[in-house]
Amino acid sequence: MQLYGSNTSPFARRLRIWCEQHNLAVSYQHLDIFSPDGRKFLLAHSPVAKIPFLVDGEQVIYDSNVIYEYLTAHFKLPGMSWDERNQFTMINAANDSAIELLLSQRSGFDTNEERLFFDLQKQRITLCLKALEQQAGIIEHAYVRASLFCLLDWLQFRELHDLTPYPALIAFWQALQASPQAQATDPRQG
């Protein structure tokens, strides 16, 4: 199995961390989707034109959420409870909104302007982080933990959201930062 993603993608990173934690036989390949060759490769394998994607023989899986489900089934690992799925949904929502803001900034938009789209993304991030702050001490599922860590680290890396109001999330993030998997996948490296 081959996982393709970007070294800076929080969605690819959480899969990499989780696969490493479970010693899953999944290789990883960095793909620069903004280079001509990388874009061509991406479009040849994924009609949704996003990373990460997983290639397992003839089977290609196009989304990190579905990749997680595929690997969970393939390796017969325990899935998430409904509460864990809700935690995961909040993490994904905050991550998606943060990526929308980053892409808007890179497209030349001032995301600090009062605009409905930007305001809604910021509101969603804040609401999700507030709820996750209350649950930080009870997040137990390995993939949910990896996903939350990657969200928090990515927000810091991209300087997209102030985490100061969330001491439990900061403590969670700091506790996982020194793990071998977090160190090996740090987007600040190379």
Rank of each mutant, 00 (worst) to 15 (best):
N112Y: 00
N112A: 00
N112E: 00
N112I: 00
N112H: 02
E113K: 04
E113L: 04
E113P: 01
E113C: 09
E113M: 05
E113G: 03
E114S: 01
R115Q: 08
R115F: 08
R115M: 08
L116D: 09
L116R: 04
F117D: 06
F117G: 07
F117L: 03
F118G: 05
F118V: 06
F118S: 06
F118H: 09
F118P: 09
D119T: 06
D119Q: 09
D119S: 14
D119G: 07
L120T: 09
L120D: 13
K122R: 10
Q123I: 13
Q123E: 15
Q123P: 14
R124C: 14
R124V: 13
R124K: 14
I125H: 07
I125Y: 06
I125S: 05
I125G: 06
I125T: 08
T126L: 12
T126D: 14
C128Q: 05
C128M: 01
L129C: 12
L129Y: 11
K130N: 15
A131V: 14
A131W: 11
L132Y: 11
L132M: 09
L132R: 10
L132W: 08
L132T: 13
L132K: 07
L132Q: 08
E133K: 04
E133W: 07
E133S: 03
E133M: 03
Q134T: 10
Q134G: 13
Q134P: 11
Q135W: 15
Q135V: 10
Q135C: 12
Q135N: 10
Q135R: 15
Q135S: 15
A136C: 02
G137M: 06
G137S: 06
G137P: 03
I138H: 02
I138A: 01
I138G: 00
I138R: 01
I139A: 08
I139M: 12
H141F: 11
H141T: 12
A142L: 04
A142T: 05
Y143E: 05
Y143T: 02
V144K: 00
R145Y: 05
R145G: 06
A146M: 03
A146V: 07
A146D: 04
A146C: 02
A146K: 00
A146Y: 02
S147N: 06
S147K: 05
